[in-house]
């Protein structure tokens, strides 16, 4: 399953899906320990799925979803860029 994605992590795919998929993303910014995402609709964001994908916390405020991931956000962002 992973070989078809050229090393793009399953984690990145799971996080993107939990954020409501590509269609829901306005932008995603890696911020030291957090992925700071601006989304069209926060009601479709699946907090449980984000936690299951390794998030240590999820803060939602307005259209912004902050996902606490740790210092691997930069690697994750590189993977997310491939998926967007």
């Amino acid at each position: 399953m992973s070989e078809g994605r050229s090393g793009v992590s399953e984690q990145a795919a799971d996080i993107l899906a939990a954020l409501g998929g590509v269609a829901n993303i306005i932008e995603i910014e890696p911020c030291t320990t957090r992925l700071r995402s601006e989304v069209h609709d926060t009601t479709v964001v699946d907090v449980k799925a984000l936690r299951a994908a390794g998030a240590h916390g999820v803060m939602i405020s307005g259209h912004v979803v902050q996902v606490v991931m740790g210092p691997n956000v930069d690697t994750l962002a590189t993977d997310l860029e491939e998926l967007l």
């Binding site: 399953m1 078809g4 994605r5 050229s6 793009v8 399953e10 795919a13 799971d14 993107l16 899906a17 998929g21 590509v22 269609a23 491939e82 998926l83």
Partner: peptide, 15 residues
């Protein structure tokens, strides 16, 4: 939008 809603896990990545 149909591309956008495609399941991300199946996205092919080249290079």
């Amino acid at each position: 939008s149909s591309e956008l809603t495609a399941e991300p896990a199946t996205t092919e990545v080249v290079g």
